[in-house]
Design a binder for these strands. Structure first.
Lengths: 151, 151
DNA sequence: GTATACATTGACGCTTGCGTCAAGGTTACT
DNA sequence: AGTAACCTTGACGCAAGCGTCAATGTATAC
């Protein structure tokens, strides 16, 4: 009940917050996807609020973009590197270095956006196909004179 | 070399066309996802051109929408039912029946579109997040005076 | 001190989605 | 007839992604 520090969570707390199981969290740790912020003297894992966001990121990469957990790990490592870039950026006054660090971050964002865009395009094509199909169905419904009057 | 019938394919031919393996095709058959059009006297599976489209459909549902093969089977069965609806539609002059059949087809298309829409929304949110991140990076690049002059 | 609910580690189990292998048959070409 | 490339079925193997269990430790409340 220390008010000035972020409340730390045990594994069950985080699991409930993120809607996964403790087993999943231990598994992700073993894969290098998500490390606890600390361990208590009894060996309990302690997580901070950042873990919740990281799990959401993992979920996105896994479920929305279809990456395996191995691939997710690589992507997160790149993103971690960008975070480190950000810290180093703030820690230097070298404009050239700063620009380099920013370009790296931009390149990573570009690559990810490309993947998202490709997936969006495939889904959009599916949506268009279904919409066309529905247009044809509507037309046929009109010829039966059934339209919206029923149901 | 029969010009008037669609060329039938053996399993290796279809596998190459659809970029899967013969093993995958036998597996899909065992799951009820894709049946051969016929079998030759020697037991060879024969597929027709429709199989190519069906495999593309399976790929979409699996890779773009993230369904398991069991789920894909259920969805394809619904779509097959709609095909049957279409055949029955053409085979009746009962306007009321026709309207019913069309409404069933519309309902299925609605459900699928809903799924696609949900996935699109998630990916769009990811894309927006990344675009925002890139906007911030660009702003920082401007303060270093590095912009586009390099690279 | 006790009870309860949580935690720890290690390991086996299960499902999914195939890859690969063995043993043999079929087809088409030479 | 021989050969090569394809095919068949059945079955084991593998990786991924956890679920579940056993045996035990930890923390908190009573």
């Amino acid at each position: 009940m220390s008010n000035e520090v972020a409340e730390e969570m045990r594994i069950g707390d985080l699991a409930r917050r993120a809607r996964v199981t403790p087993r999943t969290l231990r598994y992700y740790e073993s894969l290098g996807l998500l490390q606890p912020a600390a361990r208590r003297s009894g060996g309990f894992r302690l997580y901070d609020e950042q873990a919740v966001g990281r799990l959401e990121r993992i979920r996105q990469l896994k479920e929305l973009l279809g990456f395996s957990l191995g691939e997710v790990r690589q992507i997160l490592r790149s993103e971690d590197a960008v975070q480190e870039i950000r810290a180093r950026y703030l820690g230097t006054e070298d404009a050239g270095l700063r620009a380099d660090l920013l370009r790296q971050a931009m390149a990573l964002a570009d690559a990810q956006r490309e993947l998202v865009r490709r997936k969006l395009a495939g889904l959009q094509a599916m949506d268009d196909e279904i919409a066309e199909r529905q247009g044809r169905i509507r037309q046929l419904l009109r010829t039966t004179g059934a339209d919206e009057r029923q149901g």
